[in-house]
């Protein structure tokens, strides 16, 4: 097996185009967290870019609700694995198009609408390791900023993280491939045999 591709964020259009389903990657640079409530807010309220304290254009969104500890005036990331991406399927295509998102990190994969948006805009979905929360928290080097902390709380807020060699696998690419769909189709065939 080929070793992982080391990628510096932000992702360029060339980076995205060059990534294919099955590629192992180590991501370094800035990512933002965002899960259920943030996706609903972004799509329902459509906040203007000026209202968001950091630039989402070209950003990578990590589906994650971390455990954060406040020590004096500083925040520490204690645990930060991915959450199930399918719960934001109804919002993700709009978020990608509206805000110019170039990468998604999550777990479990997503569906048709998101896949189409990835293909049309040049964006990629990375699957990281569900439950490996301590291991992944240690890949987060710094908290740079946070948005909506008071209103949404630490789990649902948008955190701006600096990560170093954050491991993931490309499972949905900008060329219309979806590894989750392929595995599901194979397992469905086996399922039919087993339950005939």
């Amino acid at each position: 097996m080929v070793g992982p591709k080391k990628i510096k964020l932000p992702l360029s259009s060339e980076d995205v185009a060059g990534l294919k389903v099955g590629d192992l990657v180590l991501l370094s640079g800035n990512i933002v967290s965002g899960r259920d409530r943030m996706h609903k807010y972004l799509v329902e309220k459509r906040p203007a870019p000026d209202d968001i304290p950091f630039n989402l254009s070209g950003a990578v969104i990590y589906h994650c609700g971390p455990v954060i500890k406040k020590v004096d005036d500083n925040y520490m990331v204690i645990a930060a694995g991915p959450t199930t991406s399918m719960r934001v399927e109804m919002y993700e295509a709009a978020v990608i198009r509206e805000y110019g998102i170039k990468g998604i990190i999550g777990k479990g994969g997503m569906s048709g609408n998101t896949l189409r948006a990835l293909q049309e805009t040049g964006c990629v979905y990375f699957n990281t390791i569900g439950g490996a929360a301590v291991y992944l928290a240690d890949r987060i080097k710094k908290i740079l900023d946070v948005w909506k902390l008071d209103e949404f709380g630490p789990t649902e807020a948008m955190w701006l993280f600096e990560v170093d060699e954050f491991p993931a696998i490309v499972t949905m690419d900008a060329h219309g491939n979806n590894m989750h769909r392929d595995i599901e189709e194979l397992s469905l065939r086996k399922f039919s045999e087993l339950t005939r």
Partner: peptide, 23 residues
């Protein structure tokens, strides 16, 4: 490799007394 990282995560959580999963 994923299971390898999962086992490493379990060790790391136990040693540093941090939650195995953020959820």
């Amino acid at each position: 490799s994923s299971l390898g990282i999962i086992l490493e995560n379990i060790n790391l959580a136990r040693k540093t007394v941090r939650p195995v999963c953020q959820d």
